[in-house]
Write a protein that binds this DNA or RNA. Structure first.
Lengths: 414, 414
DNA sequence: CCTTTTATTTCGAGGCTCGAAAAAAATAGT
DNA sequence: ACTATTTTTTTCGAGCCTCGAAATAAAAGG
C-alpha cells in the first residue's frame, strides 16, 4: 500500500518508454510520426530522441527511401540500433533445447537446436548444455557490437512466480531447478524464466495485437496441455507459481489418471497420451505413456476422420474435456479470444464440435458472444518469438528507459 | 498500446493520491508522519498538504490530545474532512434494499433498509425505491455540508464490466437493468455498480490488509454462491461481465440442475437450495426452491451435526463441490487466502473436511502451502463497508487527487 | 536564387520535487 | 522570566521535465 512516489525523472522514464515502444512496434518512425503517435509535444520528442540517439539506443536513417518525394525538410527515420545489445533466447521442451541469439532490432543472429533426452537428465546437465550453446553463440562474434544484456528462457513446465525456478515439469525427473539464478551467474545478466505458454501468448500479442489485446488465452495442445493467459494486457501468473495450469483443472472428479499423479485432470482426457490411451481402448487408469510419436498421433487422427469408431470417440472425449475447461475458465474470466497452438491445433476439426458443445450456453450473461478460436499448428517459432520479445521489451521498458525500473504504476500491495 | 504520456502534474496527482490514501488508512497523521510514510520530502508533503487543507479536503487538528508531552513544536494531525463530500451506498439483495449515506471521513450519516419482494419487481420499481430512499437521506440534511459526489451500488447478480448494468440476477426476473446510468441521471454523480462479492473483497482488504493483499478471494455462501477476486491488489473482473462466477463453474458434467438453468454447476451442489434438496432426498434434477428459510437451514445444520445421515451427507456434498471449485481456481491462480462469508460460513465445520479433502494434493507445485480459510458469518455489514470504501477511495484517487483521473499507470491495451 | 513547405531544434515559462536553511512552537533549565 | 534546546513545518533556490512559440534546417517549386 506504500505506493511509489513520483519524481520528475519518472516522467522522463515513462515518456522514453513510450517512444521506444512505438519505435519497436512500428519500425521506421520520424520524430514527427512519434509526436503524433505518442501525444508528446515536438520539443519533448526531440529531446528524448536526441538522448536516445546519443546513447546509441536508436539509429537515425538520414537517406530514407526515395518514396518520399515530398516538399519540405525530409523526415529522418529512426530505428532500434541492432548493435546496442543482444538477448539470449532459450527454450526447453521434451528432448530438445533451442538456443538463439537476437539483436536489439529483433534480428536473429544465431539459432541452434540440440536433441537430448530430458527425462534422465539433471538440471546441471541441461544448464551445462544451454550455457555451452549460448556461450558459443555469443563468442562467435557474429552481429558484432552489443553485449548480451538479457536472457529469456521458457520451459515446458511450471515455474515460480518470480521467474527464477522451474518447480516441476513433465519432461524431467528433477524438480526445483534454478535455471534463472544459474544463468545469471553464468552470463551476468538478468534472466526471465517462464512457462512456454506464456511466451506463446506474448508472441501472439505481438504479431496480432488487434485480435489479442487485453484478455486472451493461448492453449498449447501438445505433450501436455498448458495455457498462457493475458489479463488486462499483462501476462498473468499466480502468486506462487506460474500457475494457469489449465490442463490440471479437474474435469471428472476422481476420473482418469493423469501424468501429474492426480485423477480427472483435463489433460488426462485431452493430452496426446490420453487420446492414444482411449483410442487403444485401454482403461483410463492405465499409466500414461511417456511420449507419443507424432506419426502415431497423425495416423490416429486420420483414422478418426475416416471412420466413426473408437479413435474418433477418443478425440471427442478430448474435445469435451477442453470444452469444459474453457467453460470453467469463462466462468471466471469471460469468453475471450482463444488460440489453440501445437499438434492439437492440427486436429481441431476433430475436437471442435465437442468443444463448442460443452461451451454452449455458458458464454457469459449478456447473450450472444461468439467465441473466437484460432489455430496455430506450429508452436516452436511462436515460443521463440515470445521469448525474444519478452527480453527486448524488458530492455525497452526497464533498461533503456533509464535507470532501474522504478515504474510509474502504483505498486500493487504491501 | 498507445500508453499515457506523463506530464508534470501527473507527478503531483500521484503524490497527492499517496498522501490522501495514507491519511485515510491511518487516520490522524502529521506532516512528519506522512514524510516517513510516503517517502516524499518534507517540503513536498508540506506543499501538498497545504493545498489539500486549503481546498477543504483535509482538516487540521491543532489541539491534539495531551498524550504528546514531548519537547519541540507539536505535530498537527490531519484527517479527512467529513464535510467535504458524501457518498451513497446501495445494496440490493434478495427481498431487501439497503441504502446508506456516508461522509468523506467514513462516518455513516444515515442507513435504511427496505424489505420488498424483488422477484416480481421491475428495475423501474427498484430504482424508484432506491432513489426515494437516497434522496430522503440526502435532503434530511444531517451531516450538513458536503455534496453527494459518488454512489456505489452492489447487487446479488452479474454486472457488466463497465459497472453500469446488472446483466442477470437470481433475485429478479428482469434482465439488463441499467442501475448505473439511471442513478447517475437521478443524482448527477458517477455510479459504480458491482457484484456484492467484489465489495466483500474490498471490505476485507480494507479491514485486514495484512492478510488480504495481492491475490485473494472472498466467497459468499448464501442464496447463491458468488466470488469476489482480487488479483495483484486490484479487483478482478472479466472483459465483458463482472464474471468470477465461481458458483457456475462445472463441477459434474451434465450433473445436478442449477438455478441458472444449466447443469452440474457448483451451486447446484453447494447452494442452500441444493443442500436442502439433497437433505430432503430429492433427485438432484428437482427444480431449485426459490428461497430457503434461514431457520430451516439452521435446523438442517443442527441435524447434520448431531447424527450421521442424509443431512450430513448433503453438507459433505456441498463441501466437495466447493473444494473442487477451489481446486480449479487454484489451478489457474494458486492457493490464496480464502474468505468464506455468509450463512455458509456458519456451517463451516460441516463442510470443511470435504473442502480440504478435495483440495489436498492440488496446492501448487512447490509443496507445502497451507490453505488459509477464514470465515465471516455476517455478509451484510461487509458489503456495505466495501461499497463505502469503493466510493471513498474513488474520491481520494480520482477526484481529490486533482482533475480527471488520467492515471499514472500505463493503459493496459488498445 | 528566392519562396514555400515540412521537420526539427532552441528558448523561455511554468510545474514539480528536493535539500538546506529559516521560521515556528513547544519544553527544559537557570 | 528568559534563554537554550528540540522538533515540526515552511521557505527558497537548484535542477528536472514538458510545452508552446519562435527560430532554424533542409528539401522542392517556380
Amino acid at each position: 500500500m506504500a505506493g511509489a512516489i513520483a519524481r520528475s525523472d519518472d516522467v522522463r522514464r515513462q515518456n522514453r518508454r513510450l517512444v521506444l515502444t512505438a519505435v519497436r512496434r512500428r519500425g521506421a518512425l520520424s520524430r514527427t510520426d512519434l509526436t503524433g503517435m505518442t501525444g508528446l509535444s515536438a520539443s519533448t520528442v526531440s529531446a528524448i530522441v536526441a538522448a536516445l540517439v546519443s546513447e546509441g539506443v536508436l539509429l537515425e536513417n538520414r537517406d530514407s527511401d526515395g518514396s518520399t518525394v515530398r516538399r519540405g525538410r525530409p523526415q529522418v527515420s529512426l530505428m532500434p540500433n541492432p548493435d546496442i545489445a543482444k538477448v539470449g533466447v532459450v527454450n526447453l521442451s521434451l528432448n530438445s533445447i533451442t538456443v538463439a541469439l537476437v539483436d536489439y532490432a529483433g534480428g536473429t543472429i544465431a539459432e541452434q537446436i540440440a536433441d537430448l533426452p530430458t527425462w534422465p537428465a539433471t538440471g546441471r546437465d541441461l544448464l551445462a548444455e544451454i550455457s555451452a550453446m549460448l556461450r558459443q553463440q555469443v563468442q562467435s562474434g557474429a552481429g558484432s557490437g552489443g553485449k548480451l544484456m538479457h536472457i529469456s528462457m521458457s520451459v515446458q513446465g511450471v515455474t515460480d512466480a518470480a521467474g527464477e525456478k522451474m518447480l516441476w515439469a513433465p519432461i524431467i525427473r528433477e524438480r526445483n531447478i534454478g535455471f534463472g539464478p544459474a544463468l545469471t551467474r553464468a552470463f551476468g545478466v538478468p534472466v526471465a524464466l517462464a512457462n512456454d505458454c506464456t511466451m506463446l501468448a506474448e508472441a501472439l500479442r505481438w504479431t496480432d495485437p488487434d485480435h489479442y489485446s487485453g484478455d486472451f488465452a493461448a492453449i498449447l495442445l501438445s505433450y501436455g496441455i498448458g495455457m498462457g493467459l493475458y489479463l488486462k494486457g499483462k501476462p498473468f501468473s499466480g502468486s506462487h507459481s506460474s500457475a494457469a495450469e489449465f490442463g490440471h483443472m479437474a474435469h471428472i472428479p476422481y476420473g482418469a489418471l493423469c501424468r501429474c499423479g492426480r485423477r480427472g485432470c483435463i489433460e488426462a482426457y485431452a493430452g496426446d497420451y490420453a487420446i492414444w490411451r482411449n483410442a487403444m481402448g485401454m482403461p483410463d487408469t492405465a499409466p500414461p505413456a511417456f511420449s507419443i510419436d507424432a506419426k502415431v498421433f497423425t495416423e490416429l487422427a486420420e483414422q478418426a476422420r475416416e471412420t466413426a469408431g473408437i479413435e474418433r470417440e477418443a478425440f471427442h472425449t478430448a474435445g469435451r474435456a477442453i470444452g469444459f475447461g474453457l467453460n470453467n475458465l469463462f466462468s471466471l474470466i469471460d469468453p475471450v479470444p482463444i488460440a489453440l497452438v501445437g499438434p492439437g491445433a492440427r486436429v481441431f476439426d476433430l475436437i471442435e464440435p465437442e468443444i463448442r458443445n460443452a461451451i454452449s450456453g455458458s458464454a457469459g450473461w449478456d447473450g450472444a458472444q461468439e467465441l473466437a478460436i484460432r489455430c496455430y499448428p506450429e508452436e516452436h517459432p511462436l515460443i521463440l518469438q515470445g521469448c525474444a520479445m519478452t527480453s527486448l521489451l524488458h530492455l525497452d521498458a526497464d533498461v533503456f528507459s533509464g535507470g532501474e525500473a522504478r515504474g510509474f504504476s502504483q505498486t500493487s500491495a504491501a
